[in-house]
Design a binder for these strands. Sequence first.
DNA 1: CTGTTAGCGCTTTCAT
DNA 2: ATGAAAGCGCTAACAG
Lengths: 339, 339
Amino acid sequence: MIDEESSTPPSTLLDVARRAGVSPSTVSRILNGTARVSEDKRVAVLAAIDDMHFAPNQMAQGLKKGRSMTIGIVVQDISSPFFDETLRGVDDGLRGKGYTSVIVSGHWNAEEEADRIRLLLGRKVDGIILLSGRISEQTVLHFANQRPIVSTGRDLHTKNAIGFKIDNEYGAYIAVRHLIELGHRRIAYVSGPPDNIDAAERLAGYTRALREADLALDARLIVEGNFHEASGLLAVNHLFDTQQQFTAIFAANDLSAYGARLCLYRKGIRVPDDISLVGFDDLPGSSYTAPPLTTVHQPLYDIGLIATNALLCLINGEAVQGTVPPLELIVRETTRRLR
Amino acid sequence: MIDEESSTPPSTLLDVARRAGVSPSTVSRILNGTARVSEDKRVAVLAAIDDMHFAPNQMAQGLKKGRSMTIGIVVQDISSPFFDETLRGVDDGLRGKGYTSVIVSGHWNAEEEADRIRLLLGRKVDGIILLSGRISEQTVLHFANQRPIVSTGRDLHTKNAIGFKIDNEYGAYIAVRHLIELGHRRIAYVSGPPDNIDAAERLAGYTRALREADLALDARLIVEGNFHEASGLLAVNHLFDTQQQFTAIFAANDLSAYGARLCLYRKGIRVPDDISLVGFDDLPGSSYTAPPLTTVHQPLYDIGLIATNALLCLINGEAVQGTVPPLELIVRETTRRLR
DNA sequence: CTGTTAGCGCTTTCAT
DNA sequence: ATGAAAGCGCTAACAG
């Protein structure tokens, strides 16, 4: 291999200064627009920067300024459509602001999550966005006095930590009420993990909708899932194995709705003709399932965007603005009127 | 709000040294295991570190050592199941290695991609993984003499840049051959964007399979898509609008296969009974569509893992190891024998 | 085994 | 308007 292409040692601000025949401070001033510089020097420096391919070393800048221009994002799963949508919002919220994000995963584990936050803090991120965090509010607050934090899934509102929460109970409520309005009386529920707060709230919404309609709550119609496709399939299978009677299924999230739908397909049961199905999340793929899924739309993208703006505000000591749009039922083609 | 919880100014190595009554070098040595230190001092330092909640400033470390312990990942879409799987591989490949990754998106745009790479370089990443890059090989090589790069989608093998390429042509070939073996004669193709190299190669595979089976290539059966769901739906719609006769559809990727499937559903056409369908990618969701999708499995996760290991090798000047497993057809339930 | 010293590349007073 | 100098927090010779 020819070595002439070999690693150019990256040029430094000092190199540029020498080449342009000015002091380092002058170069720095031009770079940051910190002060006026005479036109001739400016031109010389810009030229030098250009043909030396100079780019400031962000680590040096960061060390000096005490700001890394990096924010940390904590997700629970590096590869899930759920987090993806939110990340897209974050990405857009950061665009053009000069910030970069580093994404780490807590893997749905409070222990690991705290660990990753410590890592981010060591990396001197300027702020943290916590998505579906598992750690306690107290822990969040603890970390928050090192760096500002905005978190989803909790209501927080202190000087350096704020949180947005969506109304899971309400979301589940409107989903089930929709089914009831369609004439369904026996509605099965594929739940989320019992230790998950979102799951618990959705269960509460399911319960309330039933109660308000004077429908009996039948525990046999509630099957535990874990938010993944496989659990949806298993859950519905279980419903059939135990010979439950039902005309509709409400799944705690879209992924488990997909699993439920596959189970139904396997059994030759038509959706929505024989059984209605509604999910929760409205993942991007849910408008392209066959048939497209009726589901509760979570403003995932907006949440990412709003959280990012809020964090930027906290970082700059500005007042935080923006609220999360409400949940909304998207009626597509997996539900229909009974009879 | 009570201010007593207010921002603790993060303690520095010097603080620790003072508190433990030793020199900064000693603390550094303990931190890095660089040299032996007497037991009593070690204990004192560790204690100090502990109760001052000290964590080394990575920016300072990085500046000094010239290594940021960060690698950059360039994807084209921050929220796509395709990149997700690969990122999961990268994440696992990095685990426990002390490296953090920063993910940026080129948004399927060569210009922006180059921009993001420059950004990563400015952030002093120790290496870059380029996923489905759009920039020219020359550009990659150019950047590569600043930092090692490993790229997917191209064959590269220089001192500081290596690339892995999957055999798209072969993948498409086995997909179509499967259909032919099942007795299909008129096989429609929903292509990818014509300027996309992967798409072009897949088209070549489709063509070869047809040719080898002495089947005529009918241009009317080839409809342009763009790798997204909507384009799959539109493409198949177009096929019907123009009254084409076909018994099977090969879609250039899973996402467009989903769209195609929805179109078929809308028209009341059964899959696979009336029409067979095969995709390309094997996204995680493809085993949970109804019916589960027959598709060409791309080892996305492995690609991420292997690319990461390769990059780590490049960074440490070690010999690069590992090859990407071959593509493989996963026969599920959207294809069936004709008649 | 341990402390002193000199920077890594940049920004920022402080003079001029 | 511009340069000299100090220093962000850490590591790595170099002495001892």
